[in-house]
Design a protein around this nucleic acid. Structure first.
Length: 261
DNA sequence: CGTAATACG
């Protein structure tokens, strides 16, 4: 089973840069997109409903903002949109597809980099989402939570960790939140199970020479329930592609699709 | 600086 996640920074922009042509060659079972920055009525072109996939969008109410999507090679038993939050469900940040006992989720955690107000919103979402992840752990299901988590976990996960300790995305509170998720709740950062190398980034600033100098951050994760830990086979970050300021993260699991859990 | 709309990341 192959799962791909990408923050598209505009699904229409990514399409113009060849994302859907690339995707055809990837043999993905589920594709998780964040920052579609479009509403469904703007995505009439068949490009945005790829052949061979069941496609689901969860848009923000605000035009050109946020939004997540799922492309699924087999039809899910159920789709869940949103977390039951008045504040965040209108921002299009969560969509879950259920296939038997497996759920695959596309998540877009708020960025806090634009203002203190947005950082406060990010912390509110983190509170809400940690409770959600606690609730998921009590279910008799397995989960793959894909997306842009907007937090680098450890110094190995960004180039300039020393100078970024006061910046959104590498704040001590944000890092501790991921510690809680992984160490206390038992969720697994699947990429790090199969790749412990430095310089494995999924996002680069558009400013300066960040891309050319590989001054990046690892913000995009596939976070899996503990029962899937020994099913994680391999991970690839497609840094050659420039569909977005993020790179696609593709992971292979030792499971058929649809899963036989 | 890029995407998409005059804000947000």
């Amino acid at each position: 089973m192959r799962i791909i996640t990408l923050n598209a920074n505009g699904i229409r922009s990514a399409a113009r840069k060849g994302f859907f042509d690339w995707l055809k060659q990837q043999d993905a079972d589920v594709v998780c997109i964040q920052e579609t920055k479009a509403q469904e009525h703007q995505l009439g072109d068949e490009t945005f409903w790829p052949q061979g996939y069941f496609t689901y969008y969860h848009d923000a109410e605000k035009k050109g903002y946020s939004g997540v999507a799922l492309f699924c090679r087999s039809e899910p038993d159920r789709i869940i949109t949103g977390l039951g939050s008045e504040e965040f469900d209108q921002e299009g940040r969560y969509i879950e597809a259920q296939f038997g006992k497996l759920s695959v989720i596309s998540l877009y955690l708020p960025s806090g980099s634009s203002s203190e107000e947005r950082q406060a919103a990010k912390f509110r979402f983190m509170d809400l989402f940690l409770d959600h992840m606690r609730a998921l752990r009590r279910k008799r299901r397995e989960y793959i939570v894909c997306g842009d988590w907007n937090i680098a976990h450890k110094p190995i996960d960004l180039k300039n960790w020393k100078s970024n300790q006061k910046n959104s995305g590498f704040l001590p509170e944000e890092r501790a939140w991921l510690d809680t998720l992984f160490d206390e709740l038992g969720w697994v950062d699947a990429f790090r199970v199969v790749n412990t190398e430095p310089d494995q980034y999924t996002w680069w600033s558009n400013r300066g020479q960040a891309w050319a100098k590989n001054v990046g951050w690892r913000l995009d994760y596939q976070v899996v329930s503990p029962g899937l830990r020994d099913k994680i086979r391999s991970a690839s970050i497609y840094t050659e592609q420039r569909f977005s300021d993020h790179a696609p993260l593709s992971m292979d699991y030792d499971l058929p699709f649809p899963p036989d859990l």
